[in-house]
């Protein structure tokens, strides 16, 4: 009886009793959710256009952030380091297309997936070799990102909001809008979307497959850099980020592998739910640190009910 109470009643009572704290928890979750959504977005783009389950999206975030900080450490001014990092990400996209994708075109999905694991490992090694394996601090101030915090007093309580988090959210929203405009309005964007449905049709638009792939991977690189900056500002730049970035996978599963909207909604939902679960159930009842697995278990449960994810299309099997 008591345990039922502590599971089903007490947490909600706590939420109502201290709504300002609940709001703070939701906000924190939302900010992590934005980051999950961004990683998932880069992932969905690649999957939509090439059916590749790109395991390397997480490490691309780390690699972009490391490059940015590393360049700055070597005396490049912050605002010049950003475009230089983008150039690096572009060449990375070209290299991946040339060395990995082109020779493996038409191979089974699982082979391509494994190849992206290889890319992940290679980039970890390369990043460590060039920039060293130790943690770095993101050059937040040098990039002009505000670092103060605002406080608000809703419900007669107290909520503190970091300005860099607000910057992250605003930046992410702008990035998503730009991306959607690109995908829906430009010829290249339409070709990328068509590619997910039909290779031949996309080719008839008159853009070569290699070009599309380079561009898609480059866009994922841009998203990776943006993610790396905001995430690095919160938690520092380290290879541990790669494991956190794996959470983009449950986000994707929840949203459905091909849905841009699904990635965003899934990211926000997982960010908020895992934080709320941790604070109100995980810490008091389970000894904490439930964020390590909550997202995966949630996605697993959802998939058991809807194997195609929340936003995926129903699969009809045929022979």
């Amino acid at each position: 009886m008591e345990s039922l109470h502590s599971i089903f009643v007490a947490p909600f009572a706590d939420m109502v009793a201290a709504p300002d704290f609940f709001l703070q928890v939701v906000w924190e979750g939302l900010v992590s959710g934005v980051l999950y959504a961004l990683i998932a977005l880069g992932f969905v783009l690649i999957f939509k256009s090439s059916r590749i389950f790109n395991f390397a999206q997480g490490i691309m975030v780390v690699f972009a952030a490391l490059t940015l900080v590393g360049l700055h450490e070597r005396g490049v001014p912050a605002l010049l380091a950003v475009p230089l990092t983008l150039v690096v990400m572009f060449f990375l996209a070209v290299a991946i297309e040339r060395v990995v994708l082109r020779p493996l075109v038409n191979q089974p999905d699982i082979i391509l997936f494994m190849a992206t694991i290889g890319v992940t490992l290679f980039l970890i090694g390369l990043g460590e070799t060039i920039f060293g394996g130790e943690n770095k601090v993101m050059i937040t101030q040098q990039l002009g990102i505000p670092t103060g915090s605002w406080t608000m007093e809703p419900f007669g309580g107290f909520v503190s909001i970091e300005q860099k988090d607000v910057t992250a959210v605003v930046g992410a929203v702008l990035l998503v809008i730009a991306l959607l405009v690109f995908l829906n309005k430009s010829k290249m964007g339409r070709a990328i979307r068509a590619l997910g449905d039909d290779h031949q049709a996309a080719l008839s638009v008159g853009i070569s497959l290699s070009t599309i792939w380079v561009i898609v991977w480059f866009i994922s690189g841009i998203i990776a850099l943006a993610t790396g900056i905001v995430w690095g500002a919160r938690a520092g730049v380290s290879f541990a980020l790669e494991v956190i970035a794996l959470k983009a996978l449950p986000v994707l599963m929840l949203g459905g592998l091909e849905s841009v909207n699904g990635a965003i909604v899934g990211g926000l939902a997982i960010g908020v739910l895992e934080k709320v679960f941790e604070i109100y159930w995980g810490q008091p009842l389970l000894g904490g640190n439930t964020e390590a697995w909550f997202a995966y278990m949630l996605a697993l449960l959802v998939l058991l009910v809807r194997p195609q994810g929340l936003f995926g299309e129903k699969i009809i099997e045929r022979v």
């Binding site: 990995v100 494994m114 190849a115 694991i117 290889g118 890319v119 290679f122 090694g125």
Partner: peptide
């Protein structure tokens, strides 16, 4: 570091 990189390259 080199080990990680080489294994990645080997897989590809």
């Amino acid at each position: 570091h080199l080990n990680t990189m080489i294994i990645g390259a080997l897989i590809i």
